[in-house]
């Protein structure tokens, strides 16, 4: 147990608007060990980003954690004061966001933003911080970093900006790095470069990584364990190998079949029918039931619970005895 870095138990997040309350994350539990990489996979709106923002307690004014606990190094984050949270954010848990285009301040130089991040947590003079910032830029593979320090975000390409974001996130040696769709906004070739970079960083740093994506291909290369989310719930949680070799949940299978393959000659790309149910109108039974090929009678009426099959957890009536 001493090896556990982050443990999330029965997390529930609700967003309230003037006329309704929606539950964006509903009873999610998982844990991340030191140095481990967890992949969180799911379609848009399944609650994966909300889960990560809840860990940093950055849900904004409308979102609220209504249930559960988040233990980071054994301490409940939800009980911490706001100023304690500022100590954790960036220093212990750092985050990389999806859109590097808008994620960096447009009126500040790259250098200023990096130095700003470094000096939030570490007391050092400007010269040392600047040196460290340049080192970080070098580490994430940015050519002529001294010159880049004085440039503004709009002068950099998308891939370069994402590298800067990664440099910012890693600058205080966090023990947990949350990467929320780090490659989604990038060109395919740049995506590959960023994934390579993340893989390198995984080897060289001791940080645990939570990588959030809708692209199973991204996590296939990096994750030790994978959690598949659907409509605010965990539907399958297993180690990466078994997810790819023997997916249990029909949704996971659907996601895997949706990946285009070159080695098989198919005319029509597979797609899961329908779309994610609205959070305002959650189905009574299994949330995936309307789109499921294997739906049974019970699926329509009773929500399945997470049950253990071997080393995996899966939320499906097919595996419930």
């Amino acid at each position: 147990m001493a090896n556990t870095l982050l443990e999330v138990n029965n997390l529930q997040v609700q967003f309230s608007t003037i006329d309704s309350t929606v539950t964006a994350v509903d009873g999610v539990s998982f844990s991340v060990n030191k140095g481990e990489t967890l992949g969180v996979v799911g379609e848009s709106g399944c609650g994966k980003s909300v889960t990560s923002m809840a860990i940093l307690r950055l849900l904004g004014k409308t979102g609220k954690i209504t249930q559960g606990e988040i233990l980071f190094e054994g301490q409940d984050i939800l009980k911490k004061s706001e100023s304690d949270m500022c100590q954790i954010r960036g220093k212990e848990i750092a985050m990389i966001f999806q859109d590097s285009m808008t994620g960096l301040n447009p009126v500040m130089t790259i250098g200023k933003q990096l130095i700003g991040t470094i000096t939030v947590h570490e007391k050092m003079n400007k010269k040392t911080a600047e040196k460290k910032a340049i080192d970080m830029l070098k580490k994430v593979g940015i050519p002529s970093p001294e010159q880049r320090m004085n440039e503004y975000p709009h002068q950099l390409s998308g891939g370069m900006r994402q590298r800067v974001m990664i440099a910012m996130a890693l600058s205080c040696n966090p023990s947990l790095l949350i990467a929320d769709e780090p490659t989604t906004a990038l060109d395919v070739t740049i995506q590959a470069q960023i994934i390579e970079l993340m893989k390198d960083l995984k080897k060289t740093s001791e940080a645990a990584i939570i990588i959030i994506t809708h692209d199973l291909g991204v996590v296939a290369e990096m994750a030790d364990r994978i959690m598949v989310m659907y409509s605010g719930q965990v539907v399958e949680y297993a180690d990466a190998r078994s997810i790819f070799i023997n997916p249990l949940h029909p949704y996971t299978r659907g996601l895997l079949s949706s990946i285009p393959r070159l080695d098989k000659d198919v005319d029509v790309l597979y797609a899961i029918k329908g779309s994610v149910p609205s959070l305002q109108n959650v189905p009574k039974g299994c949330r995936f039931c309307e789109r499921c090929q294997d739906a049974m009678e019970i699926c329509k009426n009773k929500p399945p619970v997470l049950c253990t099959v071997g080393d995996c957890s899966v939320r499906c009536w097919k595996y419930t005895k």
């Binding site: 940093l56 950055l58 100023s83 949270m85 500022c86 100590q87 954790i88 954010r89 960036g90 220093k91 750092a94 985050m95 966001f97 994620g103 960096l104 301040n105 700003g116 991040t117 939030v120 947590h121 974001m165 910012m168």
Partner: peptide
């Protein structure tokens, strides 16, 4: 959001 995530007050 990025700035908040770096732990800036």
């Amino acid at each position: 959001r990025t700035a908040r995530a770096t732990g800036l007050r």
